[in-house]
Simulated assay, not measured.
Amino acid sequence: MCSYCGCESIEVIGRFMAEHEQIINATGDLRRAVAAGDPDAVDVTRAAVARLLWPHTTAEEVGLFHVMARDEVYAAHIATLCQEHQSLDALLGTITAGDEATMWRFEEMLREHIDKEDNGLFPAAAIALDGDDWVEVHQTTPHAHADGVVHTHADHH
């Protein structure tokens, strides 16, 4: 997690960074299940990673990424990040009990991807986006409240 520029103090970026930490922790559970060779535990932990990862990547793409991609300076990088989301999805689905090589590739790709966001895109967003941009990001980023219902603030306007 980036700690040098303060970007985590921006609500949506702080949320994404906290979600990254949860995803990494769940991935550790998956790694341990793979190493133990327990197919049932792999199924349960792989599903837990997916339940964290896909709402997270969707929220990034429809909110922050969408707004930032309008700037040609960031568009290609964001396209790469979106492609990495798809690659992570595909690779996660292939992880099986005992397949430590695939597990390693997934975890390495995930950590590199998170590093690009936490230490690259998020600090850049803190600098590049202005108040109106952040209002749009906030309004278009899906999120859930305590009741578990996912919505955007744009739904309420």
Rank of each mutant, 00 (worst) to 15 (best):
V67Q: 06
V67Y: 06
C82S: 15
Q83F: 15
M68R: 12
Q83P: 01
L88Y: 08
I78L: 12
L92V: 07
L88Q: 14
L88G: 06
G63K: 04
A90L: 10
Y74M: 04
A90P: 14
T80V: 00
L81K: 00
S87A: 15
Y74E: 03
G63F: 13
V73E: 12
H77P: 00
Q83Y: 09
T80D: 10
D89S: 15
V73I: 15
V73Q: 12
A90F: 04
L92H: 11
D71V: 02
L64E: 13
A90G: 11
F65V: 05
Y74T: 00
D89E: 10
L92C: 11
F65Y: 15
H85G: 03
Q86V: 04
E72F: 07
L81E: 08
L81A: 11
Q86S: 13
V73L: 13
L91R: 11
A76H: 01
C82I: 05
T80H: 05
A75S: 03
A79L: 01
R70C: 04
D89Y: 05
V67P: 00
A69S: 13
M68Q: 09
Y74L: 01
A79S: 02
Q83R: 13
M68F: 11
L91C: 15
E84N: 01
D89K: 08
T80K: 05
H66G: 08
L81M: 15
Q86R: 08
M68S: 01
Q83C: 00
F65C: 04
A79R: 01
F65A: 15
E84A: 07
D89A: 14
A75H: 01
E72V: 04
S87E: 14
A75L: 02
H85M: 00
E84M: 00
D71H: 10
E72S: 10
L88K: 10
Q86H: 08
L88R: 11
D71W: 00
A69M: 05
A90K: 10
G63I: 09
